[in-house]
Simulated scan of single mutants.
Amino acid sequence: MRQKTLDGLPIAIGSSMRLLVGPNQELAARQLTVSVAATQTSNANVFAGFVQPLVEPLIQNNRWYLFSDPLSAPVYVYGYLNGAEGPQVTTGPVSGVDGVEVSVIFDFGVGAIDWRGAWFNPGT
């Protein structure tokens, strides 16, 4: 919530966040974000409904990532490159044999554009 844009303005993180954890932290993440029927407001879970836990098996140890709403503070972008709208298929004859050569090019990419919409904890 304290992150700022390059212009120094505060970033509105949006109405939801995603907590990305590995298998070691799945139970803790689900316990942190579960809704409870509290009889007192001090016992209510303020993260329920606001933080969505996601489990990624490739995240090792106790590491975790917290991402803001992608519409409010995008961290990664993905899409087709060079104006391609899908796989590009070309065919042509093969010299010396009976057959057709088929080539498929799929120009798709992903990349980080800003670090301020995410937080990484090394698990310490």
Rank of each mutant, 00 (worst) to 15 (best):
34 V>W: 13
31 Q>W: 13
26 E>N: 04
38 A>H: 13
112 A>K: 10
54 L>F: 01
110 V>N: 06
36 V>S: 06
58 L>N: 12
100 V>E: 10
48 A>Q: 04
40 Q>Y: 08
31 Q>M: 10
43 N>R: 12
39 T>N: 07
108 F>N: 05
46 V>E: 04
23 P>T: 15
37 A>M: 14
20 L>F: 06
75 V>I: 07
69 D>E: 06
109 G>E: 01
89 V>S: 05
106 F>W: 05
79 G>V: 05
18 R>Y: 03
94 V>Q: 05
85 E>N: 14
100 V>T: 12
74 P>M: 12
88 Q>E: 13
94 V>G: 01
74 P>R: 11
89 V>I: 13
30 R>I: 00
29 A>Y: 04
96 G>T: 09
95 S>W: 01
76 Y>P: 00
99 G>C: 08
79 G>I: 07
107 D>G: 05
51 V>I: 03
38 A>P: 00
59 I>N: 05
84 A>L: 06
66 L>W: 02
29 A>D: 03
75 V>F: 04
44 A>T: 12
25 Q>T: 03
12 A>I: 14
87 P>M: 05
51 V>R: 02
18 R>C: 00
84 A>M: 03
99 G>E: 08
16 S>I: 01
22 G>S: 14
100 V>F: 00
34 V>D: 10
62 N>K: 13
106 F>E: 11
18 R>V: 08
102 V>P: 00
53 P>V: 00
49 G>E: 14
32 L>I: 00
65 Y>Q: 04
47 F>C: 00
73 A>H: 09
46 V>H: 02
79 G>R: 14
101 E>A: 15
85 E>W: 10
46 V>C: 01
26 E>Y: 06
93 P>T: 13
73 A>Y: 04
97 V>K: 14
98 D>Y: 12
103 S>N: 07
33 T>Q: 08
56 E>S: 07
77 V>C: 09
67 F>H: 02
46 V>I: 11
15 S>H: 09
